[in-house]
Amino acid sequence: MSLTAGCLLGLLMCSADPVDEIRVESVLLTLIEHADVSASETGLLSLLTVKEGETVAEGKPLAKIDDRDAKLICDRSETELKVARSFADNDVRVRFARLSVAVANAELTRAKESNVKFPKSVSQSEIDRLKLLADKSVLEVEQAEVDQLQAKLSLQIKQQELARAILALERRTIIAPFPGMVVQWKKQHGEWVEPGMPVMRLIRLNRLRAEAFVASGKLPANLVGRPVKLVMSDSGKSAIKYTGTLVFVSPEIDPVNGQVRIWAEIENDSLSLRPGESGTLMIGPATLSKPVITDSTATPTDKKSP
């Protein structure tokens, strides 16, 4: 490669200009997450732990369904589990059966040795009886081991029943599925609820969606992931800016007006923004990768002949 060609290639690789900032007017703020939180179990709504307008964290208890019966079932499962564990851990029968095998084999061995030293000192019937006792002792070991295995399996069943009882108890507490604000109680203290019945409405405000429709001809191909700023203008006050990220560009173009739906996630940690407000969205330029610097003065290394 010549020196002039190398300089030209380096210039082309470094001269790409970033895409200009895009301004979108009349952006509407909407909710990203909102839910009618429902009951998971049947029962009487016995406690409301938060008020309308209160902000809650994810996992915070919101209400409780009467759980006295569920607690009794849970306590009984715990007791049954202790009983099952005592049976599963008890290996006395196994150890006794193994000792019985040793004793029976010893008696049988002594009887056979006695017959060797003193022929016919022990009758064949007695030998057969002692052999039967020895075989019986072996089978009793196997039976004791089977019984202990069944006790361990029963222990697993009781553990599962306790876990199910604990789950049923936990499901009587209605918790927040995401951080947000309680805006409406649909059921009140003392009312009866069923599984799937909405109890309260929860909305998330610390992250909102800025949604708009933009002419498809003005949109570059690499919009998703760009940083954005939401500008909120107030009469008589300076504009307030909120940061966020563009996360969605619809692949569909409206055949009537040629517009594309886009939306960005806007951080609203101060909770000063409200769904339904409108503002201006500034979509930042795409982040450019670092330019590749080429050494135009480099020349190929001369190869030496072997």
Rank of each mutant, 00 (worst) to 15 (best):
P227M: 00
G258C: 11
S233K: 14
F248N: 08
V247H: 00
D234T: 10
M232E: 04
T243N: 15
K241H: 13
I253C: 05
P255D: 13
Y242V: 11
Q259N: 13
K229H: 06
T243Q: 15
D254K: 05
F248G: 02
G236D: 06
G236C: 02
V228T: 03
E252H: 06
V249K: 09
G244D: 09
F248R: 10
L230N: 00
S238M: 10
L246T: 14
I262P: 02
A239I: 13
Y242F: 14
S238W: 13
V249E: 08
D234Y: 12
D254G: 01
K229C: 07
A239T: 12
L230D: 07
L230H: 00
R261P: 08
V256M: 13
A239N: 14
I240Y: 12
Y242P: 01
Q259F: 06
N257M: 10
R261K: 15
G244C: 02
V260C: 04
F248D: 04
K241M: 09
D254L: 00
Y242S: 11
K241E: 14
I262F: 03
M232S: 07
S235R: 03
P251S: 01
E252M: 11
L246I: 09
M232H: 08
S235L: 10
N257I: 12
T243V: 07
E252T: 06
I240T: 14
Y242A: 15
F248C: 01
G236T: 03
S250I: 00
I262Y: 04
F248P: 00
I253K: 05
V260T: 08
M232A: 12
S235G: 04
G258F: 11
T245M: 15
L230C: 05
P255Q: 15
N257W: 06
R261E: 14
K237E: 03
S238T: 03
P255W: 13
D254F: 05
V231M: 04
G258P: 04
K241V: 06
G236R: 00
M232R: 13
S235M: 06
I253Y: 08
S233M: 07
S238Q: 06
T245Q: 09
V228F: 04
V256L: 12
V256I: 15
K241G: 08
